[in-house]
């Protein structure tokens, strides 16, 4: 596997208490808050208890606010599938989105009841099929063992669920997928999702950049180290 990394998805999700009030007035003022925070958007949509602000590609961004269980539980989700922007640019966008959220719904102190962060990326391989590389080079398995399926293997991969060590707070869980990319079998698809699996202390800051960089550091240190056996460049 080559180390030329291509980010294809970055997202951060907060479940918060209290719940932001979604009504025509706050939807409008949120759009103004987004502009005031330095972000641009191309259109919006609302769907019941959900309000989404879009920015179309090439610098895709999606900011979603959901009144999950008013007045107690709400949600803020920031996602980008822009394939050409570095992570730090998304971090800036997420910081601006969080700032706009706070400015429009100054209900502090918020409590983060749940949070998850996702990074997906692709890597080129040096072989014809990424799963073959994973299976034979990294796992040292004979290709013949896959013949028991009596059909060509389209793709495959590895998945790990890793909880934080006992006693460590906040309690977190990593969900790591290392797979061949179905759409282009020469590429390795890596998805790492970090879940905070217990509410954070009241008033804990949203800190999107810090949380995103934490996941990125985990990928660069732990996941790449695991993949070292097949890294050739």
């Amino acid at each position: 596997m080559k180390r030329d990394r291509k980010l294809i998805h970055v997202g951060i999700d907060y479940i918060v208490s209290p719940c932001p009030a979604l009504n025509p007035q706050t939807r409008l003022s949120f759009q103004q808050s987004i502009l005031d925070s330095g972000l641009e958007y191309t259109n919006t949509t609302e769907d019941g208890n959900k309000f989404i602000v879009f920015r179309q590609p090439p610098s895709h961004l999606e900011i979603t606010v959901i009144a999950l269980n008013p007045p107690h539980i709400g949600q803020l989700l920031v996602v980008s599938e822009d394939q050409n922007r570095p992570l730090n640019v998304f971090c800036d966008d997420a910081e601006a989105a969080v700032q706009a959220f706070h400015n429009n719904w100054p209900l502090s102190p918020y409590q983060i009841m749940g949070c998850d962060i996702c990074i997906r990326e692709l890597h080129e391989t040096t072989s014809d099929h990424a799963f073959k590389e994973l299976w034979e080079d990294h796992l040292h398995q004979p290709s013949e063992s896959l013949s028991t399926f009596n059909r060509p293997i389209l793709g495959g991969g590895l998945r790990f669920i890793a909880n934080s060590p006992p006693g460590e707070h906040p309690t977190t869980r990593y969900d790591i997928k290392i797979e061949s990319f179905i759409d282009d079998s020469k590429k390795v698809f890596i998805e790492v999702q970090l879940f905070y699996i217990e509410p954070l202390p009241l008033g804990e800051p949203f800190s999107p950049s810090q949380r995103l960089l934490q996941v990125n550091q985990f990928i660069e240190n732990q996941v790449y180290s695991f993949m070292k056996g097949v890294l050739v460049t």
Binding site: H9, D13, I15, L68, Q75, D116, C118
Partner: peptide, 12 residues
Amino acid sequence: NNFRKDNLDSTG
């Protein structure tokens, strides 16, 4: 149910 049942996550 409130948190997850019909809930988006960071995968979008």
